[in-house]
Simulated scan of single mutants.
Amino acid sequence: MPSPSPRAVLFSPSPLPVAPSASAAPDSLVAALRAAGCVFAEAEAELILAAAPTPDHVTGMVERRVRGLPLELVVGWAEFSGRRITVAPGVFVPRRRTEFLVTQALAQAPDAAVVVDLCCGSGAVGVALTAGLGTAELHAADIDPAAVRCARRNVADVGGLVHAGDLFEALPGTVRGRVDILAANVPYVPSDEIGLLPAEARDHEPRVALDGGADGLDVLRRVAAGAPDWLAPGGCLLMETTRRQAPAAAEAFTGAGLRTRLAVSEEEYAHVVIGVRP
Rank of each mutant, 00 (worst) to 15 (best):
Ser3Pro: 00
Ser12Asn: 15
Pro13Leu: 07
Pro13Val: 03
Ala19Glu: 15
Ala22Pro: 00
Ala22Asn: 03
Ala24Trp: 01
Pro26His: 05
Asp27Tyr: 00
Asp27Thr: 14
Ala32Met: 11
Ala36Gln: 09
Gly37Phe: 10
Cys38Ala: 15
Val39Leu: 15
Phe40His: 15
Glu42Asn: 06
Glu42His: 09
Glu46Trp: 01
Leu47Gly: 10
Ala51Trp: 00
Pro53Arg: 05
Pro55Asn: 07
Asp56Phe: 01
Arg65Leu: 05
Val66Thr: 03
Arg67Cys: 07
Gly68Lys: 04
Leu69Ile: 09
Leu71Ile: 08
Glu72Asn: 05
Leu73Asn: 12
Val75Lys: 02
Ala78Gln: 13
Glu79Cys: 09
Phe80Glu: 11
Gly82Val: 07
Arg83Thr: 08
Pro89Arg: 08
Val91Ile: 09
Phe92Glu: 05
Phe100Val: 09
Val102Glu: 08
Ala105Trp: 11
Asp111Ala: 15
Asp111Tyr: 02
Asp111Val: 10
Ala112Asp: 13
Ala113Gln: 14
Val116Phe: 04
Gly123Glu: 09
Ala124Tyr: 05
Gly126Tyr: 10
Ala128Cys: 08
Leu129Ser: 04
Thr130Ser: 14
Gly132Trp: 10
Gly132Phe: 09
Leu133Ala: 07
Gly134Gln: 13
His139Glu: 14
Pro145Ser: 08
Ala146Gln: 14
Val148Ile: 07
Asn154Pro: 10
His163Cys: 13
Gly165Ser: 11
Glu169Asp: 15
Glu169Met: 04
Leu171His: 11
Thr174Cys: 06
Asp180Val: 07
Leu182Ser: 09
Val186Leu: 12
Val189Pro: 05
Ser191Leu: 00
Ser191Ala: 11
Glu193Leu: 11
Gly195Pro: 01
Leu197Pro: 06
Arg202Met: 00
Asp203Ser: 14
His204Tyr: 14
Val208His: 00
Val208Ile: 11
Asp215Pro: 09
Val219Thr: 15
Arg221Cys: 12
Ala224Phe: 02
Ala225Pro: 00
Ala225Asn: 02
Gly226Gln: 04
Asp229Met: 07
Ala232Cys: 09
Gly234Lys: 14
Cys236Tyr: 01
Leu238Asp: 09
Met239Pro: 02
Ala248Cys: 03
Phe253Trp: 04
Gly255Asn: 05
Ala256Asp: 10
Arg259Asn: 13
Arg259His: 14
Val264Ala: 03
Ser265Thr: 01
Glu267Arg: 10
His271Glu: 13
Val272Met: 03
Val273Cys: 04
Gly275Gln: 10
Val276Asn: 02
